[in-house]
């Protein structure tokens, strides 16, 4: 028997395409954010509120993933920004090849901010690099505070935690401080914001984070 060392990532093909995407985003100064959460945590609602408050001439685009239906793209398209639905037909996550394919007829040099709304799932999307600058994880207050401990991978890999539906806090037994503490147990120092897409509470904080992240991405571009 002959043992050959492989030392190769299992998802090396995905990682290769993701690496190419990341390089293209960098070249064109596009900030790419990958939004991940359980189904129904409010990714689309957060995006609706966000797109609504951005100036109409802002160079923003959205790719939204679901297993079936064009519903989310229809909701998000109303704000006038380029929006495309990715229907995976059963796959529980987006992969880099899907992103690459759906970006084919868009000009990245005309997009400063690209939102990717992943398929609702806290597990599988954490394994697939999409070439994004940052992952953002959402957790709604109607879920359990211990989700970060149950699904550590995605909380560990995300730059920001967005606690959603905070307008429901008076009606649910959810301890928001405990949820944040759990996230920080998995990911020490993790930043978080608390928002309600319904009342608009906390949206300012989220928009500030977004603005700072965009400024940071622009600054990071090498001087030509």
């Amino acid at each position: 028997m002959n043992r050959v060392p492989l030392e190769k990532k299992v998802l090396s093909e995905n990682d290769r395409i993701a690496g190419e995407l990341r390089e293209r985003f960098r070249e064109h100064g596009t900030l790419c954010l990958n939004l991940i959460s359980s189904p129904g945590s409010g990714k689309t609602s957060l995006l609706e509120r966000t797109l609504e408050s951005l100036p109409g001439n802002d160079r923003v685009a959205v790719l939204t993933g679901d297993i079936q239906t064009e519903n989310d793209a229809a909701r998000l398209r109303r704000f006038g920004f380029p929006t495309k639905q990715i229907t995976t037909g059963g796959t529980c996550h987006l992969d880099a090849r899907m992103i690459d394919r759906h970006l084919a007829d868009w000009k990245l040099e005309e997009i400063d901010l690209l939102f990717i709304e992943n398929v609702g799932n806290l597990v599988c999307p954490s394994s697939y690099d999409l070439g994004e600058n940052a992952k953002i994880v959402l957790l709604s207050v109607t879920e359990g505070e211990d989700k970060p401990l149950k699904y550590p991978s995605i909380f560990f890999k995300s730059e920001l935690l967005v606690l959603t539906k905070v307008d429901l806090l008076p009606y649910v037994p959810f301890d928001i401080a405990v949820a944040e503490e759990n996230a920080r147990r998995v990911h020490p120092g993790m930043q978080s914001v608390r928002v309600s897409a319904t009342t608009g509470s906390g949206m300012g904080e989220w928009m500030t984070w977004l603005e700072q992240r965009r400024a940071h991405a622009v600054k990071a571009q090498p001087v030509a």
């Binding site: 050959v4 990532k9 394994s127």
Partner: peptide, 21 residues
């Protein structure tokens, strides 16, 4: 102290392959 960084634990790698003639 509580001041550390993660250095491994998220691997998903193929380490080796054994082939037989």
């Amino acid at each position: 102290k509580l001041n550390s960084e993660c250095i491994s634990g998220d691997e998903l790698e193929m380490a080796y392959l054994e082939v037989e003639e």
